[in-house]
């Protein structure tokens, strides 16, 4: 009975969450564009599904995704795994780096939004950026980002140093990256963190900040997702630069062409 009441409450909250976008679309459709809905029945069913789906997801989130992230953090930092427990030394946390890397890489490789972006990118680069190469590059970017983010929580350094250095690298890379890839690279940062990954990664960071003595969850626990959105930008631009460099070296004629176009740009 109690869980039923909870479910009803979640459903009501969901309706409140979805209401703004539904209202906006309807107002624009009827008042500004002045057109009838093309397929009202399918749209009504669709909104029903969205409400049910979001409610179920949020209930499952509380029961599974958050607890799993926290549990992994606390188990991987337990004394049995670390061996020593007296002093916190960042070199002792090998397994938690491995876990962060593995979670980042595996979830990104399977991310549907990234697959769509990768297909677009290989189209626009006329094949010099391959779909698989890009997916692996972004996955490595997310994995490295999460690993660094976990390292930051363990050593307790302020997040903005890392992020500002990251911005610096991105800005410099932008000057040298092929122009076509730049907007896509910037977009790929936001695309890679999916609905399922976010809660687990967030809970991992918070669990870690709770488990390590001297860390404040509010200050140190957040920030993993920021790392996971920054590093793919670098990874995509690096990948584009490498493929372009290789192509130029293999084919002297395109090399000539490219040089001409760069001079034209500058």
């Amino acid at each position: 009975m109690d869980s039923f009441g909870e479910a009803v409450q979640v459903l009501l909250g969901t309706i409140r969450d979805v209401l703004p976008i539904a209202t906006i679309l309807l107002v624009f459709q009827f008042v500004i564009l002045r057109r009838a809905l093309p397929n009202p029945r399918a749209i009504a069913i669709g909104f029903g599904y969205v409400l049910i789906g979001l409610s179920l997801f949020l209930i499952g989130l509380e029961q599974a995704l958050f607890p799993i992230g926290r549990l992994m953090a606390s188990q991987l930092t337990s004394p049995e795994i670390l061996g020593t427990s007296a002093v916190v030394d960042w070199r002792d946390f090998g397994w938690i780096y491995a876990f962060a890397f593995a979670i980042g890489f595996s979830t990104t490789i399977a991310e549907p939004a990234l697959i769509a972006v990768a297909i677009k990118a290989s189209e626009l680069s006329a094949g010099s950026v391959s779909t698989w190469g890009l997916r692996i590059a972004v996955a490595i970017g997310v994995a490295v980002g999460l690993t660094l983010g976990v390292l930051r929580i363990i050593i307790g350094a302020p997040i903005h140093w890392f992020i500002i250095c990251g911005y610096f690298v991105v800005t410099i890379q932008t000057m040298f990256a092929p122009r076509n890839i730049i907007p896509l690279a910037y977009d790929s940062g936001g695309v890679t963190t999916s609905t399922v990954t976010v809660p687990i990664v967030a809970a991992l960071g918070l669990g870690l900040a709770e488990a390590i003595p001297g860390r404040n969850p509010l200050i140190d626990g957040f920030g993993l997702i920021a790392f996971a959105s920054l590093f793919p930008i670098m990874a995509v631009m690096t990948y584009a630069q490498i493929t372009e460099y290789r192509k130029n070296n293999l084919d002297p004629e395109t090399n000539q062409d490219n040089r001409q176009s760069t001079t034209a740009h500058s």
Binding site: I52, G53, L54, L56, F57, G60, Q63, A64, V196
Partner: peptide, 13 residues
């Protein structure tokens, strides 16, 4: 159970 709810919820959503 929670994971099943997550899968089911995302499918509907």
């Amino acid at each position: 159970g929670g994971l099943l709810l997550v899968i089911l919820g995302l499918t509907f959503f």
